[in-house]
């Protein structure tokens, strides 16, 4: 019997739209009692005497896909999730827009809360995505995750 797909990772050009988030948050599985999602926004941090206007994201797409898929497979097994999904933006994303979206579903809430935090943490550590912060004064700085 062919198993049903339960993990998704994708890059999209541009911000993660509200429509895409709404569609991704739909719960069509009546055995899933919990759906938890996380949205990462581009912040208008102050750097020197200017502010971040946008971030230009790039990636090693092939390795990123392999790593993100491996993370999702590992976490879905660890927390017995029903589904797990990651969407990350590429290209220039303005401050205030969503650049990173994660959603999981599970039978109960505790597993879903724990899983989503772990997915976000491990993604930031292991998936080769690079952010170039474009400042309002025309300069730029390479983003570093803290």
């Amino acid at each position: 019997m062919k198993s049903k797909k339960n993990i998704w990772f994708e890059f999209i050009e541009g911000p993660v739209s509200q429509q895409l988030i709404s569609d991704a948050e739909q719960n069509t599985d009546k055995s899933s009692g919990a759906v938890v999602s996380f949205r990462g926004y581009v912040r208008d941090d102050t750097i020197g005497d200017s502010r971040v206007q946008s971030i230009e994201f790039s990636a090693h797409k092939e390795i990123a896909h392999n790593e993100a898929t491996a993370i999702l497979k590992q976490i879905i097994a660890k927390y017995k999730l029903h589904t797990a999904r990651i969407i990350h933006s590429l290209g220039i994303i303005d401050a205030g827009k969503v650049c990173f979206f994660v959603k999981v579903s599970s039978g109960h809430r505790k597993e879903a809360f724990r899983a989503i935090e772990e997915i976000v943490d491990v993604f930031k550590e292991k998936v080769p995505v690079f952010g170039k912060e474009i400042l309002a004064n025309g300069k730029y700085a390479w983003k570093e995750n803290k």
Binding site: A59, H88, F123, K124, E125, V127, V129, F130, K143, N145
Partner: peptide, 10 residues
């Protein structure tokens, strides 16, 4: 062979 700085996604 790919050369990459520390990652900064998410």
């Amino acid at each position: 062979i790919s050369f990459m700085p520390p990652f900064s996604g998410g």
